[in-house]
Amino acid sequence: MSEGSLGLSIGQLLRDVLKERSLSMRKLSELTDIDTSTISRIINDKRKATLDHLEKFASILEIPLAKLLQAAGYPVDHKHTIRSDYDETIQHLVNTSELLSADLSIEKVQLQLTSYEAYVQTTEGRNRILYDFDKKLKQAGGVGPFIDQIKDLFTRFTMQDVAKRDLTVIGSALLYFIVPVDIIPDYIFAVGYLDDAIAVQIASSVLTRNT
């Protein structure tokens, strides 16, 4: 197959999912705001799905983005890892990756985290984390070496067995992961979650200093 996936092509994958869920291409078009003719060409393997298409399919159909990317022929490196000593390694990736915006910096991620601190302390903010975390995690499809850490932070947040300041730090990192306002769009695989990994590391570093 031209897509080069190890299993189904993106067209066959989408056909199977739509059939399983009794969804028409027209309905998928309404849900994703992607033209029906475009969806038809993708499903019939007559055009390549863009990253924007795949992100919308992943969100609406609740399919791991990584699975769609692989089926569509995008490079997926599940073995990519980042060392626990993030500060040097992540900044190196920020400095050297050609796919990243020149505006990305640890300082900008920190600023975004700070902006979430007040929201974390509201009922709406807490509920956003509790109700939306699993959906976002599923959408991420287990992508990124920070996944175990973000799960651990969520567990600590739900237990509420930490100091108020630490709870705010944890909640800010979780909101950064959940809210779709990233410095790097999440669909830019596999660096799309790099800024989320930076946010997790910043929170972890603060928590370590507070112990």
Rank of each mutant, 00 (worst) to 15 (best):
L113H: 05
T32K: 07
L113T: 01
G7Q: 09
I183C: 04
K164S: 11
S40Y: 08
D166N: 10
R15H: 11
R128F: 11
A197E: 10
S172H: 07
T168E: 08
V169H: 02
D77V: 10
D52V: 14
D134S: 11
S29F: 01
R209N: 10
S22V: 09
A140E: 06
Q91P: 02
N127K: 14
I106G: 05
Y119R: 06
D103M: 10
I202M: 05
I90N: 04
Y119E: 08
D16I: 08
S37G: 11
V109D: 01
L54F: 05
K27L: 12
T114D: 15
D77Q: 09
L31H: 01
Y176H: 03
E98Q: 11
Q70E: 15
D132G: 03
D132I: 04
I170T: 01
I188L: 15
I63Q: 00
G171H: 03
T168R: 04
T96S: 13
Q12C: 04
S205A: 11
Y86S: 07
D148R: 11
T38M: 08
G171L: 03
R15L: 09
L54H: 02
I60V: 15
D85R: 13
Y176N: 00
A71Q: 00
K46S: 08
F146E: 09
I198T: 09
G141L: 04
F154S: 05
L28M: 08
A66L: 13
M25Q: 15
R165P: 04
K79H: 13
G125H: 06
I63R: 00
V109F: 03
E3V: 05
L111A: 15
K138P: 00
D33Y: 09
L111G: 07
S29L: 02
K108G: 03
Y116G: 02
L14N: 00
N127C: 06
Q121D: 11
G7S: 12
F177S: 02
L99N: 10
V143H: 09
A197K: 02
A190G: 11
L174E: 00
D103A: 12
K46N: 12
